[in-house]
């Protein structure tokens, strides 16, 4: 029983970071209609630069700030250099462009720092002991950061002008333009926001999953799975989906032979897409004609 609880709690911890990745993906889909294949690389950048900086002796808080800012800058750059110039491009072309961006980011990181995985200690050493469960404090850090970020995004979307403008574009780009909202600026904002979320998720994960330039793929896929479980363009669903696959992965790691941990998540992605492509957590959305 305690063992089960242990797996569920650590799963929720990692799941919280997947929730952030998935949230970024869902927000971009909602505002721009594009599936961003570079999202996992934003996470990789956050994690890798944090591990490198902290490893080089930079104060962890400063390292985290620089890493998150770096991920955000890359997110903004992807939008400005790759998405924005593709005027008149359909979603298919834009999605392939994000695939290109992902390849370039990953390849540049590889060339810059090599394939080695970088280890970094937990933010705060120690464990939480509770009902026979030993939960490393790092998981609480992740959960706390995710809770703050999700709340922040929710407040942004519901309480601020920028958030309302984003939602307006998501609902009806043509009408938004009529009231003076530029879908293009919102696209920039949402890419930057998604990179921020990815970067924070990456920093939080760094002590748990020693990052290398190639983890972006696996992390991105977990984000996709989280978003798809929630319905791909449903931010709240993506958060729930992230937690769900975190728990699933925790259980798989506990009870299945190692090596199948990732296959379980990818299998879930395929299973959901084949049976309920519009998500487990919502009913179908109707396209405007």
């Amino acid at each position: 029983m305690a063992e089960l609880l242990q797996h569920v709690l650590t799963g929720l911890g990692t799941g919280a970071s997947y929730a952030l990745v998935g949230l970024g993906i869902a927000l971009i889909v909602q505002v721009t209609g594009v599936i961003n294949f570079a999202q996992g690389d934003f996470v990789m950048l956050g994690a890798l630069s944090f591990a490198l900086l902290a490893g080089a002796g930079v104060h962890p808080v400063l390292a985290a700030a620089i890493s998150v800012a770096g991920a955000m800058a890359v997110g903004a750059l992807v939008n400005l250099a790759v998405i924005a110039p593709a005027r008149g491009a359909d979603h298919t072309r834009l999605i392939i462009l994000t695939i290109g961006a992902s390849i370039v980011i990953q390849g540049t990181a590889l060339v810059a720092v090599g394939t080695k995985a970088r280890f970094t200690p937990d933010f705060t050493p120690g464990e939480l002991r509770l009902a026979g469960v030993n939960l490393p404090l790092q998981y609480l850090w992740i959960g706390g950061a995710a809770a703050v970020m999700v709340t922040g995004v929710w407040l942004l979307l519901t309480r601020t002008l920028l958030g309302r403008a984003m939602r307006a574009v998501a609902m009806d780009p043509a009408a938004s333009r009529l009231v003076g909202i530029s879908p293009r600026r919102m696209s920039f904002a949402v890419f930057t926001l998604a990179a921020l979320l990815g970067g924070i998720g990456g920093v939080m994960l760094a002590p748990i999953q020693a990052p290398d330039p190639q983890i972006g793929l696996a992390l991105g896929l977990k984000g996709f799975t989280a978003a798809v479980v929630g319905g791909l363009d449903n931010p709240a669903g993506a958060v729930a989906g992230g937690l769900l696959i975190g728990v699933l992965e925790g259980l798989a790691a506990g009870y299945l032979p190692s090596g199948y941990k990732d296959a379980i998540v990818y299998g879930l992605l395929i299973a959901v897409l084949l049976t309920r492509p519009t998500g487990l957590l919502r009913t179908i959305a109707v396209a405007r004609v």
Binding site: P85, R93, S102, Q106
Partner: peptide, 14 residues
């Protein structure tokens, strides 16, 4: 070479 592939992809698509 994947950096080159990625760059080629982006440049051609743009």
């Amino acid at each position: 070479e994947i950096v080159l592939y990625g760059l080629a992809l982006i440049l051609v698509l743009l």
